[in-house]
Design a binder for these strands. Structure first.
Length: 600
DNA sequence: TAGAGAGGCACC
DNA sequence: AAACGGTGCCTCTCTA
């Protein structure tokens, strides 16, 4: 057994490195002595846990620790070590981990412990951190990564050291940072230090954060609620989504041909690289084109709008080439590259991510940003053989949340009687429906008349009139917005109905209304996932996308299951129903869009 | 060579 | 008085 010592703020912590089977009794004694509360973490060869056993993925180390001490177990060295870790995970009464759903995937794939066995006793410091302060470092918050949280809550120097250590090893081994994980020798001092510190930091973070979680969040049961949700989204990740490989490959090839063709045109017209804005600007200015639009930072802007308005062969070629390249790389190549041995792709679902707790979905299926206007990309994703895709979405979720919580009589009346809220706003302002709709959404987002002009192409006078009319027509909304702004100005926070505390920047208190609406809406979808799980439907859920859930149901029971799940998803908020509409498609996700389009 | 910033674009 | 909220990903460019 090796033993490393490391100081945290002058106080030594000890990392024990299990090297041989003889060392395991000491490890087991440690686990038994600390079984009430143990932090853990795993080091792996990559992040593609779905390739365990068949591909290149494997677990290398597993670490356990408390505030002062940790044990590092080399699980890749053999069965005795894996057995010891398996036993330890099962023996612990409470497990702490940072972003622990990842380790649960690894435990299932590499150690054969079902996720469901460990999930109920697992607590995640990432969720605690979010409940304490959800702001990213960019937003002057603590962030949500272990290194960022260590810097903010524990010790700046340790954070810097931990962050730098794997980079230093990569440099030493002369490989890229992403390639270091499977290559670093299992007995490398820096690697063991990095690995051994992780559970110690997670344990300490847990201690710090749990006392900082707002009282109201504890009282409303938000802590356990978020954990339950995280384990449901982990199950959805594990299930994955069946990829139509032939389709994806065909479309990737088609886009590659298009890209090549349009790039050739652009080259003839004097632009070698369609993604280099400097080249585009030079080529256009040479032709005498005046470029007046500026970017946020004040530079010359050559976005889609500018290029479209110029409308010459060069700009057309740039638009088409860029689009083909981006779509191929972002949607088709990414999905094709993420397949598991069964041809399924696994999104990474961060169940509680944005400042408002909205989820984020990254990886092989960036579900939240798949083009929704047509079915071109969504045809990639298939319900299982004998199944069909069902997409169930909430109707007017955010505006209904606004109506319910503001109690505004005009807005509530409109929803209760099924009236057209966008038309009501339009009529009140004496503008057309498009401007009315734009006003409703923009005000929800905290915007003003300028935003309506830019986003919806409404004339300045009309937009000003519409915003004024909005606040006069819905005085209840005004009262809610004012109340939230006052609260934000006074305390720096607002609370949602679920007991979530959201920080609001004092120089942007107008954002408070949107935070409230967006976060409350997210919690309605989250509640649906939890209720669906209780009812045993999680195996059918493929993806959550804000106000929509995508399912794969057996064809014969699709209508019945769509109906049952829609009724579970629906929720009455302060007396107002947030309804759900379930669309039944064919096998591909894209087919839902096509069927919908053919109806209209 | 990696990271950060910026621009641009996909979405709710 | 007015105020556009929340994401992820790809590419280029500059810097350390």
């Amino acid at each position: 057994m090796r033993s490393l010592e490391y100081p945290i703020k002058g106080q030594a912590v000890r990392i024990h490195v299990v090297e041989a089977e003889d060392d395991l009794p000491d490890f087991e004694s440690f686990i038994l002595a600390n079984q009430d509360l143990l932090a853990h973490d795993s080091e792996t060869t990559g992040l593609d846990w779905w390739n365990a056993g068949v591909g290149t993925f494997r677990a290398r180390l597993w670490q356990f620790g408390n505030a002062h001490e940790s044990f590092v177990v080399p699980v890749e060295k053999g069965r005795a070590f894996r057995n010891a870790v398996r036993w330890a995970l099962r023996t612990a009464h409470r497990l702490i981990a940072h972003n622990g759903t990842y380790d649960l995937h690894v435990a299932q794939q590499c150690l054969g412990i079902p996720m469901e066995e460990l999930a109920p006793k697992s607590w995640d410091t990432k969720l605690f951190a979010h409940l304490v302060d959800p702001r990213a470092v960019k937003e002057s918050g603590p962030g949500l990564k272990l290194e960022e949280l260590t810097r903010h809550y524990i010790c700046e120097a340790i954070a810097a050291e931990v962050k730098g250590s794997m980079a230093a090893i990569a440099k030493e081994l002369k490989v890229k940072k992403d390639e270091v994980w499977p290559l670093v020798p299992i007995d490398h001092h820096g690697y063991l230090l990095y690995a051994g510190m992780d559970p110690i930091l997670a344990f300490r973070l847990y201690k710090v954060l749990k006392s900082k979680v707002p009282v109201r969040s504890w009282q409303r049961g938000l802590v356990s609620w978020e954990h339950r949700l995280a384990h449901i989204t982990a199950k959805i990740e594990r299930t994955g989504y069946l990829l139509d490989r032939q389709y994806a490959e065909a479309k990737a090839a088609e886009l590659a041909r298009q890209q090549e063709r349009w790039e050739e045109v652009a080259r003839r017209e004097g632009v070698d690289n369609v993604n280099a804005n400097a080249q585009i600007i030079a080529a256009l200015q040479q032709r005498g084109v005046k470029l007046t639009k500026k970017t946020k930072k004040g530079n010359v802007c050559v976005d889609d709008e500018v290029l479209t308005s110029i409308g010459i062969p060069l700009t057309e070629a740039i638009i088409q080439a860029k689009k083909a390249k981006k779509w191929k790389a972002t949607w088709f190549d990414r999905a094709l590259g993420g397949q598991d041995p069964e041809g399924r792709v696994h999104a990474s679902i961060n169940s509680c991510q944005a400042r408002t707790a909205r989820m984020s979905i990254t990886g092989a299926v960036p579900a939240q940003t798949l083009p929704a206007g047509d079915s071109y990309v969504r045809h990639c994703f298939l319900a299982e053989p004998g199944h069909v895709t069902v997409s169930s979405d909430y109707g007017n979720m955010e505006l209904r949340v606004l109506a319910a919580f503001s109690g505004d009589p005009t807005m509530l009346d409109a929803f209760h009687r099924g009236l057209d809220l966008h038309q009501i706003t339009a009529d009140a302002a004496g503008v057309d429906r498009k401007a009315g709709k734009g006003t409703n959404f923009t005000v929800c987002f905290g915007g003003g008349w300028k935003a309506i002009v830019e986003q919806y192409g409404v004339a300045e006078a009309e937009a000003k009139k519409a915003v004024k009319a909005f606040w006069e027509t819905y005085p209840g909304v005004k009262r809610l917005a004012d109340r939230l702004q006052r609260e934000a100005r006074r305390t720096g926070f607002i609370y949602t109905g679920t007991g979530r505390r959201l920080p609001v920047d004092r120089d942007r208190v107008y954002a408070a209304l949107n935070y409230f609406i967006q976060s409350t809406s997210r919690d309605i979808t989250a509640r649906a996932l939890i209720e669906l799980d209780r009812a045993g439907y999680t195996e059918y859920v493929r993806l959550p996308i804000h106000d929509e859930l995508v399912f794969s149901f057996p064809r014969e029971q699709a209508a019945e299951l769509a109906e049952k799940t829609a009724r579970i998803m629906e929720m009455t908020v302060k007396g107002l129903l947030v309804p759900v509409d379930a669309e039944i498609g064919e096998r591909s996700w894209g087919s839902v869009l096509d069927l919908e389009a053919s109806k209209h």
